[in-house]
């Protein structure tokens, strides 16, 4: 089975930046969820996802993002996305993710909004 999503994590004190590259589907989403739950267990409260290199998503992969949002809400945490393709940003809006997370144009603004 090919690994469809590369996940890279950069940690700061209370937040982490997670850069993604590839296809967010069920398998890769579950792998991403494991990474996020580990970070939350370690005290990370805010997550910024770099979507610039995400070429494709599907609704099952995004449903897993909703689970991560749920978990962070328990800690009043925030989820920010930046640089998603237009079709992915619209998918987030259609599925209602933007009620519980925010899309930013770039990394700097996504991180600044945590402070």
């Amino acid at each position: 089975m090919i690994d469809t999503l590369n996940v890279t994590v950069e940690r700061a004190d209370e937040y982490a930046v997670i850069s993604l590259e590839g296809y967010l589907n069920q398998n890769s989403g579950e792998k991403l969820a494991q990474v996020c739950h580990q970070l939350i267990d370690e005290g990370i409260r805010h997550l910024a996802f770099d979507f610039e290199k995400v070429a494709m998503v599907n609704s099952i992969g995004i449903a897993i993002l909703i689970e991560i949002i749920e978990r962070l809400r328990e800690f009043n945490g925030k989820i920010h996305f930046y640089k998603p393709r237009d079709v992915i940003a619209r998918t987030f809006r259609i599925m209602g993710l933007t009620q519980f997370s925010t899309i930013f144009p770039d990394r700097e603004s996504a991180i600044e909004a945590f402070k």
Partner: peptide, 21 residues
């Protein structure tokens, strides 16, 4: 999304997305 968050029903978006796009 409210059902998804409250009731754990996170699937079932496929046709809705197709109808939008």
């Amino acid at each position: 999304i409210e059902d998804s968050i409250r009731c754990g029903r996170k699937r079932g978006w496929g046709i809705e997305l197709i109808r939008n796009f």
